[in-house]
């Protein structure tokens, strides 16, 4: 934070979600670097959703569904657990969850970084379209289902059917994978991939803590890209 940083406090035990989001939406491109501290989030939904300014929002406690949904530019830090769809469809910026995240974290997200320090539930990175997701713990079943683009880096394990019907997204998992979904295969971990894992770990602030060569890479076998009768059992 520099000297020009303005700090604002928002207590959700007295103020409404609408008031918080309206105030954050009113920020324009120039009103950068302001810091917003939000207390008593109590699992409320759609907190800091739809931001489009380079601000930092620190939420002190657990958030409900769709926190920081469709985020652009902003940094949103959740000091607690996150409900369903944290950072869904985010375009850019940074979202950090200090606890665990529920289902569909980073669903359909196009860009930016979503970093979950704890565990992530089922369908993490479902239909992701370019976002980088880093999970400190494990991810649940059907993660990266129909993932189109971007990276999912998992320091722990992955549940059943990882990367089912995946397109061009890259999945890096350090621990075990319970099973791979249709058309998802393990791929060679070359130097360029280790460099990519390092870059993502660095973005999350984890560089030096984990060795990129411990990860395995998974991606699309590209056998389901065209409908074919001989693939019928996979559909």
């Amino acid at each position: 934070m520099n000297a020009s940083t303005q700090s604002h406090s928002f207590d959700l035990s007295t103020a409404k979600v609408r008031d918080l989001n309206a105030a954050l939406h009113a920020l324009k491109e120039g009103s950068n670097a302001s810091l917003w501290r939000v207390s008593n989030p109590r699992g409320l939904h759609a907190l800091a959703a739809g931001l489009d300014a380079p601000v930092t929002v620190e939420i002190d406690g657990p958030v409900g569904y769709y926190c920081a949904g469709m985020n652009k530019q902003a940094t949103v830090i959740v000091r607690g657990n996150a409900g369903v769809g944290i950072g869904e469809n985010m375009m850019s910026g940074r979202i950090e969850v200090e606890g665990d995240a529920s289902q569909a974290a980073g669903a359909t997200a196009h860009g930016g970084l979503l970093f979950i320090r704890g565990q992530a539930g089922a369908r993490c990175g479902i239909s992701m379209k370019g976002v980088d997701i880093v999970v400190g713990g494990s991810v649940g079943h059907m993660s990266a289902f129909m993932a189109q683009a971007g990276t999912l880096t998992v320091l722990g394990d992955a549940g059943e059917a990882l990367g089912d019907s995946i397109y061009e997204a890259r999945l890096y998992v350090r621990g075990s994978v319970k099973s791979l979904g249709a058309d998802c295969v393990e791929k060679e971990m070359r130097d360029e991939h280790k460099a990519q894992v390092f870059e993502k770990l660095k973005a999350a602030g984890l560089e030096g803590q984990v060795d990129p060569s411990e990860f395995k890479r998974y991606g699309s076998a590209r056998t389901l890209y065209h409908f074919h009768v001989d693939n019928a059992s996979a559909y």
Binding site: Y66, V84, G85, E88, Q103, A104, A107, T108, H110, R123, I126, S127, K129, G130, F145, M146, Q148, A149, S165, Y167, E168, Y225, H226, F227
Partner: peptide, 17 residues
């Protein structure tokens, strides 16, 4: 955000609800 020329499938359920 898809490769050109592939047969594209659209999901039948919403991903996050």
């Amino acid at each position: 955000t898809l490769p050109e020329g592939i047969d594209q499938r659209s999901a039948c359920r919403h991903p996050d609800w």
